[in-house]
Computed example of a mutant assay.
Amino acid sequence: MADITDDDSRTEAVLATLINKCGKMRMLSHRVVLTLLLENAKADKCRDALADLEKNITEFAQIAGDITPGSGKSKLPAALKRILVKVEAVSQSQSEELARFVSIARSIQARLAEPVSARRTAAIEELADFVKTTLLDTLNAIVEGISRALDHVVSQRQSHVGQQNRTIRSSISELEKISRMIMIISVNASIEASRVGAAGRGFSAVASEIRTLSQSANKVISSLRSQYDREDTV
């Protein structure tokens, strides 16, 4: 059974959005570190800055939950989660690195109300190094994983369309055979009706109508055949 539904374009759009969200996670992590560095040395904390800090950490955590298919917080469609798992878009260790960033940021955030200390400053500096190295590598790897999922969906869609086209072409061939048989039968019926004479005139008219319908059907079938033959050459 295929991993995707007929709404493949929506699936591709969601995956593209997830890639963009990974880029946003990079930005959010930088904002978090920058805010922590700026607010760390202040005796009077900026209320707006603290509100933004909370917002940025929360949004990072929400996106991390969404892109991790095994997470109970993910709101992605079940079919899309299966695809992400199948291509191993987000590994367990990568998921842990995302959770690590949120955990450390939350821990430092909770200590901002305390007087400035060398320990807290060191923790922020360590978080900054983590964001610039490990977290950046992790997010880049996740983007590659989601890109694999996107390639998988596109490949599945193309395969699905190809199978549909093969089925349609097979059906067209069968229709052509049936149309030819009907034409032969109608011609034979006309010949037989003419042999009967006056008594066969009514049947001869019916045979003629059947032949006309068969000819019209042939035109439609030929048009379909030409259309799919052109698509094969594109």
Rank of each mutant, 00 (worst) to 15 (best):
L36H: 01
V33G: 02
C22K: 07
M25W: 05
K24G: 05
S29C: 03
L38Q: 06
R31T: 06
D52I: 01
A51M: 13
M27K: 13
A43T: 11
M25Q: 09
D48R: 10
S29M: 11
C22P: 01
M27N: 14
M25K: 07
K21M: 07
R26F: 02
A49K: 06
L34T: 10
L53F: 07
K21C: 01
A51T: 13
D52H: 04
K24D: 14
A43K: 14
N40W: 01
V33M: 05
D44P: 01
A49V: 10
L50G: 02
D52N: 14
S29W: 03
A43Q: 12
C22T: 15
V32M: 06
L37Q: 15
G23K: 13
L36S: 06
K45P: 07
A51C: 00
K24E: 15
L37V: 13
L37T: 13
D52Q: 12
D44G: 05
L37W: 02
M27S: 11
A41P: 00
R47K: 08
D52W: 01
N40V: 07
K55G: 05
R26E: 15
L50K: 11
K24S: 07
M27D: 13
G23F: 07
A43W: 00
L36Y: 09
K42F: 05
N56V: 04
A41L: 04
